[in-house]
Amino acid sequence: MYKQLATFTLTAVSLVFASAAFSHTRLETPSITDGVRVTNNVVIGHGCGAEGSTVRNPVIGTSVVFPDGVDSTITVDGQPYTGNLSDFIDNWVNIPKQNYSRAVFDLQDVKTDSQGNVIGFWAGGNPLPTSMNGYVPFRINAVTFTEGSCASSVEFFISIVDICEITPISGFSESTVGLWTHNSLGTPYDRQGTEDDGPASLTVTRTSTLPASCGAGQVVKVKPSAAQINRDMPIIYNGQQVWPQ
């Protein structure tokens, strides 16, 4: 009976008429304060398909990349900043920690830099019914502001690709991937569109008192570099790239 139900479900998901109110893939908790660990989720709101389409392909995996802060692009109050992220945040290393869960996808693993620090994660394995949300859990370790800095908040833009079919880059389309990424980095993973509204936002707000000389404080924003996205967005398993391919 369960097998019959499963077969029916798999057939149905490809035919289902999804809600008109498609939502972007975002973090369940996009705003946090400094100095506190926060359990969070990547929330996948819908499958792949053209904007406005009523038929969607189910998401079978997701790839999530946080800006590493090493060669990231930083703005302060909207202006380019050529200094380092450590001028504002003094521990932006190994910050995300994936929580094990097979609630949505069977497989998962972290993405790490050359020192073993986590800079992202992926999950995959089962088709997520297009009529349902998928929650991919992780934890944000406590983020601390650099003493003496004037940052009142730092917003990190997290790049996510929802995968509906495993293809090479040449096979990317609205029906095979959902690109919740920047639109102008110059990578194969860039979201198509004129607005840079793809990535999920995570804003860390300072709770400690700003130095008196800072006034209202500075608003800092951090985007990943193209080099990081090209390096970290692919899914590597056991030394082999399994997506894109």
């Binding site: 079978i60 996808f105 069977d106 394995g125």
Partner: peptide, 11 residues
């Protein structure tokens, strides 16, 4: 193609 993920599961 999502079967690729399935094949990876056990290992």
């Amino acid at each position: 193609k999502y079967k690729l993920f399935d094949k990876m599961a056990q290992s």
